[in-house]
Design a protein around this nucleic acid. Structure first.
Lengths: 200, 200, 200, 200
DNA sequence: GATGAATGAGTTTTCATTCAT
DNA sequence: CATGAATGAAAACTCATTCAT
């Protein structure tokens, strides 16, 4: 019971932080504002988080946990590398496209400092690239993907395209569904830009 | 003469800002530190820039001007869309890879706030995407590029791959030359991930 | 029974406070830390003490009670003023030298504010000086002590020497026994600094 | 000119701090109050002092500098150890008795923390005891002072008496001149408490 | 133009104290 | 009696910006 209430309060603070940071940016979001939106006293924040920076980190971790969780489930259901890649593209765009406020944070606010970004890059994003690399390797082993491309390189390229689509969507403020772009992205990643030629 | 000296001072301030921001991040860089590194008084900064934020914007603009300038020159020398795309990829990675401090700023620090990023996105990055879009359209008209892809979509995908390569290079701190990846990037963008099949 | 348990808890809180304050100083000791060391909840402190300041006062009073108690016992056993003075000097240095943590508090932490010190000075230290004054007067009546010295003045001088010895010992962190200095102190107080001259 | 103005402002801040701290105690004196009394902005304090603690330290150092300066001058004018001791006693009580606010700080507020006190004790007070020790040694060499007393011990005893007289005066709030006690103090230190006996 | 001392608004964080359970 | 989560007032300190010289 006590734990539930704690979890609730911690979640409420994190939820409030998402909205505030998405609205005003990390450095212009005050702890007081987050507390006010969460409906707790300023000091209460510090019962759950060591400081403002740790709050941001936890925000990102919570988002990534959801991501990892759903990702593992979806990838388990399919067998071929091509299906997996298709699934990842769709999942990435679906999840980011689900919550614009959270997307603002992951696509924009989190990139604010080399320190934070380098840390995240080496850990969470690193894990993601790792998964992508494995899928590419599998595809090469299956003979479906080109073998003359370096898997880690391809993983970054795939991530780059997905990330840019996400960022563009966040900044555009359009009402299109981000996940709607998934088929086009997959197609582009698989087939590239060149028109098929007879002699190719 | 006076203008030259002014220009000099303004350039010195911008140069100092690049180093400081790359080192400590935008929000942890104080105007006093920039002034100290530039060898001017704190107040002098305000003779050349309205405020700290404007300084950051000018920083980015200066970088993009160089980019545009060299870009136009290079693209003028080639005729086909495929050559242009190859040139853009090489130029993007070359220029970013030239100055790590500046790259830290464009790849990391500049992403710190929706406000700034949205503004840049609509102007400078928008221009860049525009150029890319034209190249894609040209390639489609020439029959070299697939016609079933939306040009603006492809432009973003291309930018995403380039941007991710740049960011990865900045964060990795490796000593590899970023421009060295250009051929692989171009190849991937053109041909995609799929292995060529007989029946295709 | 209930009272005993209460007493126990109160004592445990005071004991914890002595250690914490000695280690971190009064103003850097938090109520939470005292509670944690005493093994009670934060709020429990307030069942036994009105507030933090009162806790400090009670700390000092408890120390002085012990002091007074032992003092009365010892002084009762001797008759002459000279013996009494010798006993006081020895007792003072012995008691302070017995518990370094407590000594840190009485010699250092308690001096932190005019408000507290003035209060203590008028009450507890005042009582002590009173006792000393009586001894001096007795000695003068007995013809043992000089009659041209004002008793209250001498009492303060004696206290000053004892207090400085105690403070010096606390700050020096040496492992010498403080009580070992008692004979030298008594000798100095009685005979002064001058070498005996023939004509004196 | 600039230096003069700086000195002035720094002095004004220190003077304001003396009054505020004497009135409210170190821990209840806010930087804002000091600034207000000094007639400067809060932030200005930090142009002259690294933080609040350093301000306190500088306060004490300034006081000790005056003390040392006058002390050296006065001691230079006399030759024998007895005269020197007399001079020191008089000087100590005169200087402390000159400015009650400052005295409150040196006698009361400065004693607030083991950390600060240990530091001061090892440096400034240590220097003072050093000087006293030399005088005692000189007196022993001249045959004027007893040779069976350890000089460092005597130095502390002398300091203890002086310090207690000073503290008592501060706390008593009487209007007596502190320096008036100097002859009695010197007499007590030299001759002790015992009545002269025929056989001695 | 250039300076840099001064400003003071704005923020994070701490912690004594309370009170519902 | 005891708890400890929650409170929110209070304070130190930072730093972009100004302006008299």
């Amino acid at each position: 019971m006590a734990r539930k209430s704690n979890d609730n309060k911690q979640q409420r603070i994190l939820d409030a932080a998402v909205v505030e940071i998405a609205q005003h940016g990390y450095y212009h979001t005050t702890v007081a504002r987050i507390a006010a939106r969460a409906g707790v006293a300023d000091g209460t924040i510090y019962l759950y988080f060591k400081n403002k920076e740790e709050l941001l980190l936890r925000l990102f971790e919570r988002a990534m946990e959801r991501f990892s969780h759903e990702g593992r489930e979806r990838l388990a259901a399919v067998a071929t590398a091509r299906e997996k890649l298709t699934g990842i593209v769709d999942l990435h765009l679906s999840l980011v496209g689900e919550d614009r406020d959270l997307a603002i944070i992951t696509q924009v606010e989190l990139r604010h400092s080399l320190h934070v970004l380098a840390h995240l890059s080496r850990t969470l994003v690193g894990d993601y690239l790792e998964v992508l690399t494995r899928v590419i390797e599998q595809g090469q082993a299956e003979g479906e993907f080109r073998r003359d491309l370096e898997p880690t390189f391809v993983a970054k390229a795939v991530f780059g395209v997905l990330d840019e689509m996400a960022t563009d969507w966040v900044l555009s403020r359009r009402n299109t569904r981000l996940a709607g772009r998934a088929p086009a992205v997959t197609d582009f990643l698989l087939s590239g830009l060149l028109a098929p030629s007879d002699s190719d």
